[in-house]
Design a protein around this nucleic acid. Structure first.
Lengths: 368, 368
DNA sequence: AGCAAAAACCGAAACGTTTCGGATTCGAAT
DNA sequence: ATTCGAATCCGAAACGTTTCGGTTTTTGCT
């Protein structure tokens, strides 16, 4: 049904190679160009990306593996990534692995089979041995938000420890000393970083840490409610809480309301993520926000850069024995930094920002 | 680098066709099976889906077009869809068109180029003329949540009108007569349905409608806040509001708090979507919830069903002149209803449910 | 053991591109 | 008009599968 290059060649009386050349931006005599364009128009020709992918060994598809599509932080990043990549002609295959390490490995495998050109992953598991396939095949891997052990690849991270530390410091500066934290799951890299930031701030503030003030949640609304409830039960004198992701922040606030704990009069709260909610919340929430769009953009950019690099996968058609190279650079050069010798893996670290709200109340430093 | 079927054939001494047969579940003599499996193991062979796609003209990829990945309702549905499809060996290519009709058309085009086997779309535009390409090519199209004019394809919908009507009826039964609505954008199909449901309920309740009680928002938190503010300004006597999507519900609640309007004492609210939030909210929110998982599953199932249908795209290799068919049914039959003659397009309508909360207060019917 | 039917196997062509090396044509300078 | 280098053009092979039609082997029966 659909027209092929062969049809165009026949219709124009030109050779197959010429059509191909035209389609790939090569030069073609003016009159032939017109001829070709006409034929394409008439026959409704559209190049078959699958065939092209087979021949070139580049599918123009990027695989994406995330822990939970249904999570604002992820969704925001992916939205940006998808936008950037598609603008560069890349499609994205998204796999949601539901924060399950096994499913994650399966997803990676699945995408590898589909011969995606690169992998963008927001890891759930800690060690990324299953990424080796990609790196071994010379396909770029970019990790988002979390780093995996034993995994070679670029990273786009956020300074979680610093962000958490700053947040808790603010509480300390406001006079709080009984500060709780609702931390994330042990397995989650960023959760641990945030916890470390919390501990660091306490230490620097000269406040002894109490295990009763540390509660863990599973990054869901429910986890947040439970966390706050337990904290409140165990620590009647607690005056502030730092919550380490959005869903749990929501849960914590709700639970505080439920328990009749007034914010910020009785309890100061600093949350995480989702600036929109924070701005609109009552009382206006103080939060740490992550630059999701920038994370997404940086990750996509990094991926594109890697893809544009010459790449080591020399698969010259068997007969050609010539060493010379001269890959013409498929991607428009744009702002390619020249003389850029395949650098070692890169780690980009982005800063969070702090949005001041009314959910933190200064307290005078009387004996607690 | 990667091994091909040819390598396996060579290693086992078998023919190419036999390997192919084995890989596609065909029968092979026991000893050969072992031989093949051994070779596959040793050479780390994995079938190249791209080549397979070229040959079979089926990529095992489904295109998905949605208005906003970054929106809980969409994200929940897509999560489910992706899960189901991947479990059946299908990959998904997701395109976020940001509720922009032009981008939507581009996305459809983009996916068509990639030769996806089918299209799952949650339409932004009203008329889906650009879907014709798919249907013309015999590729199934399934619309989710919204129906497009001039678009042939299956549909999975929700009874929005009924849901809205029921919700508003509850307010009326509780004695409310000054009931506002924060409706969605005119362009959005479901938004209009919900508005109709609201109007219907009023009519049935014998309450005259007032244009001052109808406010529109753009389905964002901000839109919700603004909507509520305007409603409150214009209608000092308003006692209840129905909000027609999650983001706006959130905004409305926040704004109500901001304005010091107590819920439900001064204002009863019925919201939409996101049961989790509703359950945890203070006061516990009454909402209409959509069965997102079921929507997703039904849509994916429908797609799979269509894909399994014989399909009219007969593309026999040129030489074969035989009329006989005998496509062996690639997909495992599973629970194929037999004698199922390519039915006309199907529309599945799902029911919403109502979650009772404390945000609706009965008011005694004194003269208003 | 002999036979036919059924099952398993096989080689080659095809899917729609890109790319290689060489052939052809063009344009300008003589 | 010739000539020569550069610009264009071309056919054929290749990418890794599936599938067609036909051949060989196995199986079950007598």
């Amino acid at each position: 049904m659909a027209a092929t290059m062969k049809d165009i060649a026949r219709a124009t009386g030109l050779g197959l190679a010429t059509i191909s050349s035209y389609l790939n931006g090569g030069n073609v005599r003016e009159k032939n160009r017109i001829l070709i364009e006409q034929a394409i128009e008439e026959l409704h020709f559209e190049v078959n990306e699958v065939a092209r992918g087979l021949k070139t060994n580049r599918t123009k598809v990027i695989g994406i593996v995330i822990p939970e599509l249904n999570n604002i932080f992820c969704a925001e990043i992916i939205t940006e990534v998808e936008d950037v990549l598609r603008n560069h002609g890349y499609a994205t295959m998204i796999c949601d692995c539901r924060t399950d390490e096994k499913r994650e490995a399966e997803a990676v495998e699945f995408l590898y089979h589909r011969r995606v050109d690169g992998l963008l992953i927001m890891p759930s598991g800690k060690k990324g041995t299953y990424l080796q396939k990609f790196t071994k095949a010379g396909k770029p891997v970019v990790m988002i938000d979390r780093k995996m052990q034993e995994a070679a690849g670029d990273c786009v991270l956020v300074d979680n420890e610093g962000a958490a530390r700053d947040a808790v410091k603010r509480l300390i500066q406001a006079g709080h000393t009984k500060i709780g934290i609702i931390a994330g799951p042990k397995e989650v890299y960023t959760a641990e970083e945030r916890l470390r930031g919390y501990e660091l701030a306490l230490k620097e503030g000269g406040i002894p840490k109490e295990s009763a003030l540390v509660e863990r949640g599973n990054y869901t609304i429910h986890g947040g409610s439970q966390g706050l409830r337990k904290l409140a039960q165990k620590n009647p004198h607690m005056t502030a809480v730092f919550v380490s992701n959005y869903e749990m922040t929501l849960g914590a606030i709700i639970e505080a309301n439920e328990l009749g704990i007034a914010i910020p009069e009785k309890l100061s709260i600093i949350g995480f993520d989702n600036i929109e909610f924070a701005k609109a919340s009552i009382p206006r929430l103080s939060i740490v926000t992550q630059p999701t769009r920038e994370i997404g953009r940086k990750a996509a950019d990094l991926m594109l850069r890697r893809l544009a690099e010459p790449g080591k996968e020399k698969t010259p058609d068997r007969k050609s024995r010539i060493t010379g190279d001269g890959t013409p650079g498929y991607e428009r050069p744009e702002s390619e930094a020249p003389g850029h010798e395949t650098p070692e893996y890169k780690t980009i670290k982005l800063e969070t920002s702090f949005v001041e709200g009314k959910s933190v109340k200064a307290i005078e430093n009387d004996g607690q």
